[in-house]
Design a protein around this nucleic acid. Structure first.
Lengths: 124, 124
DNA sequence: ATAACCGTATTAAGATGCATAGTACAGATA
DNA sequence: TATCTGTACTATGCATCTTAATACGGTTAT
């Protein structure tokens, strides 16, 4: 479920945050289902509980999960987050077009890649 | 010409590298023209010469500039680098499409943003 | 020649962020 | 009551970034 890439220069807790965001937004983890406990996940990944704690705190701050003292951490409702994610992707696209224009990438070259990308078959 | 953003969490030398890459790729700095000296630029930006040195070393490693002992640092020929940059942008576009598909952004939504981005007037 | 400028190298110190280790407290549950 | 949960705190080690000071080799203008 969670894999740490030690070649990645980003901190471990950030990798964990991003991975859970992905699992949550894609619906792999359902709302109100329980996450692995801080200590368990730390054990499983062979890292320190404090690092997991830091990741969970960040996920809670961003609204992806909620934690209950003594009970555990749980997946939050994600409708709003999914919508936000889509907007971020479209913003990124807009930014990329801006960059493309600055460096002389033509509309044709660009749209060709887009069309091609959407044309591909689904492998999963 | 060069501005350091201390709110940016990336290291200073990296900001300098990126800024010069931009100026070089966009042709603001012409081939074989001289860059500010390590000590002068450090003075101007109120930072340590070693930090500039680190940025220049990285720029040289990447082929953006070349340095000559006792003379100075100079802009390299950039044709190859510009081509590479365009390819990177198209790769990024391809990656973004992949992401968009994963999160259910439709082809229509996506292309609308692209078209709109290319439609805009040039402000510079 | 010599002073003033260039790039380059080295060593030492401080600051910061990340991760670990250990301990402790509060609440839930079997 | 024992064991699980989240949470908090301090201390330590480590890597990276930045600064500081000094030094060396090469170029250039006076």
């Amino acid at each position: 479920m969670i894999v740490i890439d030690y070649k990645d220069r980003r901190p471990i807790y950030e990798q964990i945050v991003e991975r859970f965001q992905e699992l949550i937004l894609k619906g792999v983890l359902e709302a109100d289902s329980q996450l692995p406990s801080v200590r368990n996940l730390a054990m499983e990944l062979s890292i320190n509980p404090n690092t997991i704690q830091k990741a969970y705190s960040e996920l809670e701050r961003q609204g992806y999960i909620y934690s209950v003292m003594g009970k555990g951490s749980f997946i939050a409702v994600t409708d709003r987050l999914i919508k936000k994610k889509k907007e971020e992707i479209l913003d990124a696209a807009s930014q990329l077009v801006k960059l493309a224009k600055e460096y002389g990438v033509t509309k044709d070259e660009f749209t060709r890649v887009i069309i091609e990308g959407f044309k591909e078959e689904y492998d999963d």
